[in-house]
Each structure stands twice: as structure tokens, then as C-alpha cells.
């Protein structure tokens, strides 16, 4: 992969982090292709080939429903997210497809609280490259935490 493409890839990972940290859900949705999949799954399930996930969304419609859920229907304690995302590792690439992964750490800060390590893991991605830039075909967030700290509202 050329430096320019790798730079664009790195930029994409950071843009994703900015969108979720700012709770900018329109931008977040815009980073996905129409027929995308988005999954947040424990490493336990992933390593044991068990299909269950904390969240398993197929297609942009489901992603939109999730956003409606977190903004309108689910009662929860407000919190901020801060993602630290590592440089991506390219696993495979062709002209229009990139398979890559990157580690992430998410800190959660609640009202009246201090930042705590909320979720750590890695993104395992299939990305599509086109003239519009990079879009997510599938993103699998595999987290190490054995226990989710009570609930998980916002996307990782």
C-alpha cells in the first residue's frame, strides 16, 4: 500500500473516532455503505465461534434504528466517550477493498464523574475504497472486557 493510501486509511480511522466521540451520528452513518454490517462482540464469543453479539446490525436501516434508539427511546445515564485508536494494520488489500484492523480504547466519563476505561478491543474491518473516499462494508468490534460496565448505549 502506498503512503498516500495508508494516510487516507489512518485518517479514516481517526475520523470515525471523532464522529462517535462527538456523538455526530449523521457523520457516523455516512461512514458506512448501505449494505454494511456492524457488530460489537465479546472476544469470548468471537474466539469460540459463537454468533451472539452485544449488538449485531445489518444494513444502514438497522444502524438508523439504533441511532433513533439511543437518542429517543433508551433511558440511560448520559456519558461521554473518548476513543484512542491505534494505527491500522493492513491485512489484505486490492484496488477497491481493504481488510484492516486497529486497536481501540474507549474511556467513559459520566456527569459528576471522572474518566474510566470502559471498553478495549480491536476493530476488524472490510473497507471499500471509491472516488467518494473510504466506506465501511463491515466493522466488527471485538472487545476484551469480560463484563460490560452495566450498559452499552453508543456505538464503539
Amino acid at each position: 500500500m502506498g503512503t498516500e493510501k495508508y494516510l487516507a486509511l489512518t485518517q479514516f480511522y481517526q475520523q470515525y473516532a471523532v464522529a462517535v466521540d462527538q456523538a455526530d451520528w449523521d457523520t457516523w452513518l455516512g461512514l458506512f455503505k448501505e449494505d454494511c454490517t456492524y457488530k460489537v462482540q465479546s472476544r469470548e464469543n468471537y474466539d469460540r465461534n459463537l454468533p451472539m453479539a452485544a449488538l449485531s446490525l445489518k444494513g444502514k436501516g438497522m444502524l438508523k434504528d439504533r441511532i433513533y434508539g439511543i437518542t429517543e427511546t433508551i433511558f440511560h445515564d448520559p456519558y461521554l466517550q473518548l476513543h484512542m485508536v491505534s494505527s491500522p494494520v493492513v491485512i489484505n488489500e486490492s484496488k477497491y477493498l481493504i481488510e484492516s484492523q486497529a486497536n481501540y480504547t474507549v474511556f467513559r466519563t459520566k456527569n459528576d464523574g471522572i474518566a474510566e476505561v470502559y471498553n478495549v478491543g480491536r476493530y476488524l474491518d472490510h473497507l471499500q475504497v471509491s472516488s467518494d473516499g473510504i466506506r465501511i462494508k463491515s466493522r466488527l468490534c471485538i472487545f476484551d472486557n469480560d463484563m460490560i460496565l452495566n450498559s452499552m448505549i453508543y456505538p464503539i
Binding site: 460489537v40 454468533p51 451472539m52 453479539a53 452485544a54 449488538l55 449485531s56 446490525l57 445489518k58 438497522m62 434508539g69 427511546t73 433508551i74 433511558f75 440511560h76 445515564d77 460490560i148 452495566n150 450498559s151 452499552m152 448505549i153
Partner: peptide
């Protein structure tokens, strides 16, 4: 049917459309 059970599981658990708020109200 397996696919259906997995899809509906999005309503339940710590991130569920329905169950996420149960954990929250218990905490408070």
C-alpha cells in the same frame, strides 16, 4: 430461525433496545 433469534437478541442484553435501561434503573 437461528438468524431471527440472533436479530431479536438486539433487543436484549447490556446493549439491548429494551434491556439496556433495566441495568441503568437498577443502578440508580
Amino acid at each position: 430461525m437461528t438468524e431471527r433469534r440472533l436479530r431479536q437478541a438486539n433487543l436484549f442484553g447490556p446493549a439491548g433496545f429494551v434491556s439496556a435501561d433495566d441495568g441503568e434503573v437498577i443502578e440508580f
